[in-house]
Simulated assay, not measured.
Amino acid sequence: MRYDVSVIGLYILDVLGRPVTRIPDRGNVEFIEEIKLTVAGTAGGVVINTAKLGLNSLAVGAVGNDEKADFVIGAMERHGIDASAMQRLDGVPTSATILNIRPNGDRPALHQRGASDHFDLPGRLYDQVFDAPIVHLGGTGLLRTLDGEKSVTLLKEAKRRGCTVTFDLIAATAETAGIVLPLLPHIDYFMPSIEEARDMSGQTTVEDCASFYLDHGAKTCAFTLGGDGAYYADHTGTRLKVPSYVIDVVDTTGCGDAFDAGFITALHHKMNPEDSMRFAQAVAAQVAGGLGSDACVTSFDDTLAWMKNHKTR
């Protein structure tokens, strides 16, 4: 196949600054230590990290025809990502977020919706997009045109062509369940945060959340639990929880996307479920140790070495 993974969905430019303790009054100035631009989003943050981890990655999404798009496309190409399936749309801005990173790593965000709202995947691109053993759809909930029946069609086609489908979403609410549940029978690895899983299912415990989504058709659930680690449950009955790593948190932006990228990379390397979860946790922990959604991730081998040198909780 032409690629190791195709990453479809939400592509955003993040503008991050840290540490932000308050917004200045009137037109005053506060000085901070660091400002950074990154490619982000539930697809953009994933594809950057899969490329850093050594996978031949295809980016599939939409940006505007503006200076923000120039940065997003250029950054991906510098990481060796094939951006030929990215759409540049006239008349709409590239989706972007301003993140004010607090000293504890929290990240209140100001988001401008843009090209991702208008992203659709035409059938003429199917042969390219599905020329990969793993297809990731990320950003359901903020993909206004693609969300719903068009995503069902997309994932059905991915499965018809024999692809393994991984999936994550964003901005989940109880209402988001209406567009997510029909997708589950076509998803091999369902990877939301536990907060998102609870909000959509109405369940409380991680075990009940997993049972809810497995009963609705997902083959496997891999939930991120923040500082409590991550939880894996599949339709064969396998259940396991892995701990988080002990780190000094700088910024939690993109940790879920980094987890997705780590898990996809583990699938590529045919790791078993426990090792896959631990590797995914390590990629997320590396990202939490710096500013932005790909901070501190350098390579597959370096991540394996990082795991040996860091303790879990």
Rank of each mutant, 00 (worst) to 15 (best):
L10N: 15
Y126A: 12
V29A: 05
D120L: 15
L183W: 04
T205G: 15
D4I: 11
G148R: 04
S151N: 09
V63R: 03
T298C: 00
M271S: 10
R113S: 13
N65T: 07
M191A: 08
D106M: 00
G217M: 12
M191L: 15
D25W: 05
L143S: 12
G64R: 00
R107E: 00
T252P: 06
S116Y: 14
G227V: 14
A266L: 07
T238N: 05
E196R: 14
L155M: 09
R26F: 14
V246G: 00
C255W: 00
R78A: 08
D208K: 15
V246Y: 00
H310K: 05
E34C: 01
L13F: 10
H186A: 06
A233N: 00
D82F: 09
T265F: 02
I81P: 13
K159T: 01
S151V: 05
M307C: 11
G9N: 10
K68R: 12
A40M: 01
I187Y: 10
A258P: 07
V249W: 07
F212C: 07
E157V: 06
K150L: 15
V7T: 09
K36A: 10
D131K: 08
M277H: 12
P273W: 12
L58P: 04
R124M: 10
V92Q: 04
R198C: 04
M271D: 09
F259P: 02
P93A: 13
P24K: 01
R198T: 07
P133M: 02
G148T: 09
K219Q: 09
V15K: 06
L37E: 07
V29C: 01
P243S: 14
Y213N: 09
T166Q: 04
M307E: 02
S151M: 11
V60H: 00
N272F: 11
P24V: 08
V63F: 02
D302Q: 15
S299P: 15
H235D: 12
D127H: 05
K311T: 14
F130H: 01
R161G: 03
G229K: 08
G41N: 06
